[in-house]
């Protein structure tokens, strides 16, 4: 049992890291914010904690807390100007944000190590810490779903005008979505850099964005279970068959196209919705029969 766990530990750990980033991406999409900024938040968190730990000898817990704070603050700052934009323009602006961050990391060699990155990071994060962080993020995501915040997010995503006419503050809730996305992204960036030994700017570029987006599209944008489903499938696919592992980008590409066309809600959300619809169809039939019984 123990050796079984050891063999799969890296897969589990990377699954947990990706899951964290996926929730950061999801909270933005859930509120109708078309952001791909998660990669930027992750990069800032990762570099913040790596620099604090390697250069200043700060404790890992404090470094990760700082990474989270950095993500939160940048998420908030980003939300202020981006309140003016919508849709693809918001997506392009957040993409520009990520590219600015990445090119800064390349440029500022004195602080970030440039293209080589930071390579002497001790591993200070283990599976239990990752589990705890994922649990915390899932708890908040779950809580959002049960509260007025979740209702406001869902309303904004489905019809912004209607939400505004019911008093939902677009500006405040979009800002909140950015802040949450930034906090979660920063937190997992911090965790990642204290797990993987070395970081470099390239790992937070376009490829990172695509990977996280794939997980969310595959899993689902609206529910707690969505990111888990998406990340789990992506982690397990290469384990199922070697060809799948060797052609990972190809497989991801096919998944993206197939899912967005045939199962636009994603696997997790889609199944949940189907279950709900089946239940409600039964309910509707019952109502109809009852109304027929009373002439």
């Amino acid at each position: 049992m123990m050796s079984y766990y050891q063999a799969y530990q890296p897969i589990i750990d990377f699954f947990l890291l990706n899951l964290g980033f996926a929730y950061s991406q999801q909270v933005a999409l859930r509120a109708g914010v078309f952001s791909v900024a998660t990669a930027g938040f992750g990069a800032l968190g990762a570099y913040a904690s790596a620099i604090l730990v390697t250069r200043m000898g700060i404790s890992p817990a404090l470094a990760i807390a700082t990474a989270t704070l950095v993500g939160t603050a940048v998420g908030f700052l980003l939300s202020v100007p981006l309140a003016r934009l919508r849709g693809v323009f918001q997506a392009i602006a957040t993409l520009a944000f990520v590219e600015v961050i990445v090119s800064f990391l390349y440029y500022a060699e004195g602080i970030t190590g440039g293209a080589i990155g930071i390579n002497n990071i001790p591993r200070m994060v283990s599976t239990p810490a990752l589990l705890a962080a994922v649990a915390a993020v899932m708890y908040v995501t779950w809580a959002i779903g049960r509260s007025g915040v979740g209702r406001a997010f869902d309303a904004l995503r489905q019809d912004e005008t209607v939400a505004a006419c019911l008093g939902v503050s677009i500006r405040n809730y979009h800002a909140l979505a950015f802040v949450l996305s930034g906090a979660i992204g920063g937190l997992f960036g911090g965790l990642q850099s204290l797990y993987v030994f070395s970081i470099e700017p390239g790992q937070f570029g376009f490829g990172f964005m695509v990977a996280i987006l794939t997980a969310i599209v595959l899993g689902g944008r609206g529910t707690l279970i969505g990111p888990v489903a998406g990340c789990a499938i992506l982690a397990l696919l290469p384990e199922i068959a070697r060809p799948l592992a060797e052609n990972r980008p190809l497989v991801n590409g096919v998944i993206l196209i197939a899912v967005i066309i045939y199962l636009p809600q994603g696997v997790g959300d889609g199944l949940l919705l189907q279950w709900r619809n089946r239940r409600s169809a039964r309910r509707a039939r019952a109502i109809e029969e009852a109304s027929r019984a009373v002439p």
Partner: peptide, 19 residues
């Protein structure tokens, strides 16, 4: 219908995030 009550909600956002 629930979203209609939005403007009367008094629980803070933080309370919402922590349930």
């Amino acid at each position: 219908v629930l979203i209609g009550f939005h403007r009367h909600e008094t629980a803070s956002i933080l309370a919402g995030l922590l349930n």
